[in-house]
Amino acid sequence: MHTMDRRSDAELVSGARQGDLDAFAVLVGRYRVSALRVAYGIAGSEAEDAVQDAFVKAFRKLEGFRTDAAFRPWLFTIVANESRNRRRSSSRRTKLDLQVRDQPQSAGAAVDDLVAQRDQRRRLLDVVASLPDRYREVVALRYFAGLSESETAAALSCPSGTAKSRLSRALNMLRAQLGEEVTL
């Protein structure tokens, strides 16, 4: 699997820039899931198309990528932009319909607990989906993709202070709506 590839992002980017598509494929494999999560958080059901567009666009833009910069935030800037575009051009202006996966029952776990967890996740996701776009974006980058605060700021092309305060505001909005419901 590509995930086992030991080469660094920088090495793979350098290879891809010289036309090594396999190197780029490794990068796609490495960031596929987190990119999909971000795109899903921003654009809902259009996530897959947004991510496809983002990777294709990233490949075309590699020539202009500064090799001393970090690839991950650069890529997620594109992912977030493409997702935003998809969301904006979507005819569905209603609230995003996001879903949690039904998990397979693990041996030994009480069914009641699993149901409670699932319901709790659904509730949290509903609240995330109801956030204004700019707050949902920052939540998707920071938590769904697992970017650091500074990477999140870089992906949003804003000062880290701005990203931080937006994040903190988003969390407060979530808390306010959830009340004491989150007990995880």
């Binding site: 598509l21 796609v28 899903y40 949690v100 709790q120 995330v128 938590y143 769904f144």
Partner: peptide, 27 residues
């Protein structure tokens, strides 16, 4: 915080589209 933990946990359970074929499609 609790809410942050819950969000990281949520990320692992999102039912987002997109499968293994995404790499092939992109290429």
């Amino acid at each position: 915080t609790v809410i942050e933990d819950a969000l990281f946990d949520l990320a692992e359970h999102l039912d987002h589209p997109g499968g293994e074929e995404l790499e092939a499609t992109v290429l």
